[in-house]
């Protein structure tokens, strides 16, 4: 079973996404901050990261993204950004991501398709 790391600080959104993806047959690991996510990565190897940008604790999604891209163990780890900021797409693409969706504008079905496509590869 594929493992997905879900980094989202809003409880409702995280809950809904977890339920959805478990229904689709994925194992979900959750984190609500960058530090928590990094700790997670030390003990497991997810096939995909679903990443929010605005996160608490002084570090945002880009800090996480830059960290994992620098580490040779995780530099090719696929990441899909789920954010409510639309101004960061170009910046994110430059660093290297497998998808960027504005949550409020994206139906769940689109997210499921994107996850299925990326994990399959």
């Amino acid at each position: 079973m594929s493992i997905l790391l879900l980094i989202e600080d809003d409880n409702d959104l995280r809950g809904t996404l977890k339920e959805l993806l478990q229904q689709e047959g994925y194992e979900i690991q959750e984190a609500t901050s960058v530090d928590q996510a990094m700790t997670c990565l030390q003990t497991s190897q997810p096939q995909l990261v679903l990443l929010d940008i605005m996160l608490p604790g002084g570090k945002n999604g880009f800090d996480f993204l830059e960290s994992i891209r620098k580490d040779p163990k995780t530099k090719d780890l696929p990441v899909i950004i789920l954010s409510n900021l639309d101004s960061e797409k170009t910046v994110a693409e430059k660093i290297g991501i497998q998808g960027y969706f504005v949550k409020a504008n994206t139906p769940l079905n689109t997210i499921v398709s994107a996850v299925k496509e990326t994990v399959k590869k």
Binding site: D10, D12, L20, N84, V102, K103, A104, L108
Partner: peptide, 10 residues
């Protein structure tokens, strides 16, 4: 957008 996404997705 946060509550809107939540409402929509639920």
């Amino acid at each position: 957008r946060t509550p809107l996404s939540s409402m929509r997705w639920d």
